[in-house]
């Protein structure tokens, strides 16, 4: 079966920034993404867990986008405007998709 090259961008960011990030992505026509809850982790600020948090301030989410390679920089520029001052992780990996017309 024929597969097509694509980029998978995974952004882990604070839950309070979710809407700002997804709207920034939509403004540059990145309309396909998946948002996942993050149950806990550990980073430069120490360990944290979603369990028992009463404030959205402490939660994190994962936004995953799969896009055509030539659109990667547009996405990263849009995301960076939002992520600039905030904690979070952005990583980009190569991937392959079956139906290129969908991305």
């Amino acid at each position: 079966m024929k597969v097509h090259r694509a980029k998978r961008v995974e952004i882990t960011i604070e839950a309070v920034m979710e809407r700002r990030l997804t709207e920034a992505l939509e403004r540059v026509d990145v309309t396909g993404f998946t948002i996942l809850p993050v149950s806990g982790g550990s980073g430069r600020s120490g360990k944290w867990s979603r369990e028992g948090q009463v404030s959205r301030a402490a939660g994190m989410i994962n936004v995953v986008c799969i896009i055509r390679p030539e659109r990667l920089n547009i996405l990263l520029d849009a995301a960076f405007d939002i992520l600039d001052r905030h904690i979070g992780v952005v990583n980009v990996t190569d991937c392959e998709v079956l139906r290129a017309e969908r991305f």
Binding site: V16, M17, R20, V54, S55, R56, A57
Partner: peptide, 10 residues
């Protein structure tokens, strides 16, 4: 500890 922490993170 609910509304202001979220506002401060933004």
């Amino acid at each position: 500890y609910i509304a202001v922490p979220a506002a401060m993170r933004v």
